[in-house]
Design a protein around this nucleic acid. Structure first.
Length: 178
DNA sequence: CTTAGGATCGCCT
DNA sequence: GGCGATCCTAAGC
């Protein structure tokens, strides 16, 4: 298994579905236990235990007491690294996403980790589940995607690492790349 | 037991 | 562009 930034880049352009609802991954960020912005930085806790487990599992946590956020666990067991899924291009089950979010603008439907989880009905119930088993499906990119790189957003530490990845030119990013 | 603050979003101006 | 919502986690005493 590769490091979190490598996986974050590889995920761009792949299709993520939960119970058949989802779309093309348009934005990701890598987090690793070596840097202070990561939930893994302070070692395993009950909340972050999944991050230190085997790769290929979902780490789902509640942010600001309101929003669920989805990560994929990377690297080898015990190494504490993951990729935050930040935005999708809505493709499958769009009407269900609109109903769940009470909002029809396709550009904003899955633009942001909290919005994406609301649209795909991802909650803490999916924490620790394998991403290659129901209800998850991860499908390879149709064509080799062009990737744009930036610095991570919404954090206050380790802000200069180029660990944010996006599908070049996509209108579905949570915030523009510079 | 108490408390500070967080990998965010939506609404307001 | 700024701020309030809202609650869980983990550190400190």
């Amino acid at each position: 298994m590769d490091s979190a930034p490598v996986v974050a880049r590889q995920l761009i352009g792949m299709t993520l579905l939960v119970d058949g609802v989802g779309g093309v991954i348009a934005e990701t960020e890598a987090y690793d236990e070596s840097e202070a912005a990561s939930h893994a930085y302070r070692g395993p806790t009950p909340r972050t235990a999944v991050l230190f487990g085997p790769p290929g599992h979902a780490y789902v946590y509640l942010s600001y007491g309101i929003h669920w956020c989805l990560n994929f666990v990377c690297q080898e067991a015990g190494h504490g690294a993951g990729v935050l899924i930040r935005a999708l291009e809505p493709v499958a089950g769009v009407s269900q996403m609109v109903a769940r979010r009470h909002q029809a603008d396709a550009r904003r439907l899955c633009a942001g980790p909290g919005r994406l989880c609301q649209a795909l009905a991802i909650t803490g119930q999916l924490n620790g589940r394998r991403i290659d088993r129901r209800p998850f499906q991860l499908l390879p990119a149709q064509r080799k995607p062009e990737v744009v790189i930036g610095t991570r957003i919404g954090i206050s530490k380790a802000t200069s690492k180029p660990w944010r990845f996006g599908l070049l030119g996509s209108p579905f990013h949570s915030r523009p790349f510079r």
